[in-house]
Design a protein around this nucleic acid. Sequence first.
DNA 1: TTGTAGGCGTTATCAA
DNA 2: TTGATAACGCCTACAA
Lengths: 342, 342
Amino acid sequence: MNKKSATIYDISHKLNVSVATVSRALNDHPRISEATKELVRKTAKEMNYKQNNLAKALKSGETKNVGIIVPYINTNFFSSVIRGIEEELSLLGYHVIICQSHEDVNIEKRHLNTLLNAQVDGIFMSVSKTTIDTEHIENILETTNTPIIFFDRKKDIAGISTVTIDDYRGGYMATEHLIKEGYKNICHFAGDLNLEIYQNRLNGYKQALLDNNFQIKEDNIIFTGSSIDTGIDAIKKLWDRKSIPDAIFSSSDFAALGACQELKKRKIKIPEEVAVIGFSNEPFTQFMELPMSSVDQTPVTMGKMAGRVFIESVKENGSGVSTEKKVVLAPQLYIRKSSKRK
Amino acid sequence: MNKKSATIYDISHKLNVSVATVSRALNDHPRISEATKELVRKTAKEMNYKQNNLAKALKSGETKNVGIIVPYINTNFFSSVIRGIEEELSLLGYHVIICQSHEDVNIEKRHLNTLLNAQVDGIFMSVSKTTIDTEHIENILETTNTPIIFFDRKKDIAGISTVTIDDYRGGYMATEHLIKEGYKNICHFAGDLNLEIYQNRLNGYKQALLDNNFQIKEDNIIFTGSSIDTGIDAIKKLWDRKSIPDAIFSSSDFAALGACQELKKRKIKIPEEVAVIGFSNEPFTQFMELPMSSVDQTPVTMGKMAGRVFIESVKENGSGVSTEKKVVLAPQLYIRKSSKRK
DNA sequence: TTGTAGGCGTTATCAA
DNA sequence: TTGATAACGCCTACAA
């Protein structure tokens, strides 16, 4: 009952030629007569022959598979990056293997290991929030030839190429925009500073303030997560004290959304009394009651770039040298009603 | 400069034992002394040995990889289903390979083939809109043992398990809800009827009308796509003629969104003058200016169920018998402001 | 132009 | 308890 697919042996038997001939014919080897090629191809089709990439990979050392590790796949940002990578690489015959770390460094480690065991040709990853130590990653670099490419959430490790957006500039642009709109007391919802992206957004915010002769008030920096609830809590916290901000630059769209909800509840008008601007340009931002300004991360482009960086590193690996690439994409500010007072 | 990872041969050399012993020790074979096991494991770690799953797969015939083909990965629905599948299967040591068909049956075919070449243990798929003929799929069934599982967008093919939601019931529920709210002239935005899901949603809509003594007016069935623009166009078309509906049940959230936008533009009040209800419960629906009612498809659950169906079929395949499963999940109606008149 | 044979890294069978 | 060896399916020197 088991249908085993035909191998080149089966074909060679049927045709009374050697396996080598079959293999070469199937691979369009120049020194095989057109007649045999034709014959082999025809019978291969008849016998429903399918090449076993496993065997080929075992021989060649190339699986034509790459792994991707992200915290969760079902967010607009990560699924869009994956889309970009897949579109860039599937044309070149690569398959894309997806793993979710659930923001847990131990799961991340496990996936890294199983991907390596699966002999992937490369690994794309955005580190989890709990990835503080990076020994497990550096270790791979030292002991294997498998290229690793960080996208978005990177760590500074020599020899690893990265594709990111300029989060600093994103933070700067958002803050500067608020200043130009006349807001005076701008607060920032900062994310987990263990991740560079949030560190950079915060720094951009700070520098924009300084460059415009504003003071940086530590009280105006609230740490939130990337959920609606943390945004709600942040508003509660802010309004419980004296100095109330007139603008919020949030490092997360979801926290910004929570802020909008809580502000509405308190009958505080956006953007008249308080401006709100988020980060990521999640699809929902443009459909909100009050369309929300946000910083776009061009995720599909990021994925495509990451794919290209990988391809280059594969080529280089063949030639011996290997230099890391650091691609930095420009963020794009989408200004909508939530931050336009003028 | 090339770092080649250690094999069991390297270990066997170093320890002066046979490869067989090493292999058995690593696999915790009962008839190997604890001492050698310990020694082997220790040196394996020292030499940074990593099992080559390729070789193992070649031998065993199991790659522990499954393929998933979806139109696009970066939509909430598909990425959530994938999340479910990944979470269910990664625990069992499987990896998940993602392919996008871009709604093109030819790309779908190509992916199907390369996945088969990659020796995946199973294939999950949601067919593309251009998949009319299913010969290429039936062919796989006949010539391989690779189980195929359809989720959401299925085709009726004997021997293929499916996991779907009850779209008929979803359509019925949505329409009935509108009727109970007192709407009298309910129109339907139908999707591509080549896909069963849209056929079923339409049928549910019709039956709900009939069961409540409403007439089915063919004019009230507008064919839209799954984009905002098609929803806008639909409203234009409807309002250009005499009998204007007082409720819209859209088979797509995006078309429903387009409708809301166009209605607002025309100063037509939702839900007082016209009710709107969508399908898919996309994240943006709850954050809209006027939160929109929608039918939830429980995508993560769908993915998990699909994973389980696959596992069962793997077990069965070992035992010889193989019966197809048809899992139908219950849709969930989320009633929000856009359809509550009372 | 075609054939022979070895090897990729494992596991499993048969001996010892 | 361990060892030798064949086999998984393919590719590729080397030979013919």
